Amino acid sequence: MAGLDELRNLSATKMRLLKLLKEWKDLSEISCEIGLRKQSLIPHLKFLNTFGLIEKNGRHYRTTKVGELFLEKFSEFARFLNVIGSCGKFLSEHDISPIPANLLNRVGMLYGAKIYTKKNPYEFLPEWLDIVKNSGRIQGLSSVYHPAFPHLFLELSAERDVKLTLTEEVLRQKSLWDWSVDFSFMGW
């Protein structure tokens, strides 16, 4: 398909232009903000315009709705690649089948994630506890039961959105959980 290879390999300059042109800008403004000469920018702008990613009105350019969508999806894919690059080995060495499809399809949310390992799976790492307590939203999966989980996540849910997915093994330990709150468990 004509242009598909070109779109797959967009240069950093073209991506910067898509991000920059959220509002109408003329060539002088673009040149000043990007730090490239006007003559160097023209081929990039023509390319983006040819594929409908930006539009031109006189001497002004801006990103189209299609360009915004392209940038969003391309950025999502770049985050996915980053996660695979930084966490792929960990993900391939662990059973990820209990992760619901809606979470697995958004694995790019792990962009910038760090992996902490420990010998005792029941031990709370201070780094993990800090991350959880300082998060505005918590969406997680637990394949390990810890006696502090019910109280911890119940306390955290008072101030933020908390969604947990528990594996069947953890759920079987239902008698250990404090069921004073109504937990809803989705299908596996």
Rank of each mutant, 00 (worst) to 15 (best):
Q173H: 08
K119I: 15
F70T: 06
N120E: 12
V144F: 07
T165D: 04
G58Y: 05
W128G: 00
L152A: 06
L171Q: 12
N49I: 01
F124M: 11
C87A: 09
L104E: 09
I99F: 08
S86D: 07
F124K: 07
L81F: 06
K73N: 08
A148G: 06
E155R: 11
E55V: 13
Y116L: 14
L171H: 06
Y111M: 03
S97F: 05
V132F: 01
Y61S: 12
M109C: 10
L53I: 00
K89R: 08
L152H: 01
L91Q: 05
P98Y: 10
R106G: 09
H60M: 13
K119H: 14
V132S: 02
K114H: 13
N134R: 04
L156H: 01
L164T: 04
Q139P: 03
D161G: 00
T167S: 08
E123W: 06
L129M: 08
D95N: 12
W128V: 15
S92I: 09
R137P: 03
H44L: 00
F74V: 11
E72K: 12
L81S: 05
P100N: 09
G108I: 03
P147R: 08
Y145I: 11
F149D: 15
S86L: 02
N82K: 11
Y61Q: 06
N57I: 13
Y111G: 04
M109H: 08
G136V: 00
L166M: 06
I54R: 04
T50Y: 01
I96P: 07
G108M: 06
F153D: 01
D130A: 04
G67K: 04
F80K: 11
R172L: 15
T117R: 15
V66Q: 11
K46Y: 03
T165M: 06
L152T: 07
T165S: 08
A113M: 04
R62V: 10
I131C: 00
L48K: 01
N102I: 12
E93G: 11
S157E: 00
G136W: 01
N120A: 09
D130M: 06
S97H: 04
D161Q: 10
N105M: 07
R137C: 01
I115G: 08
I99C: 10
P126M: 03
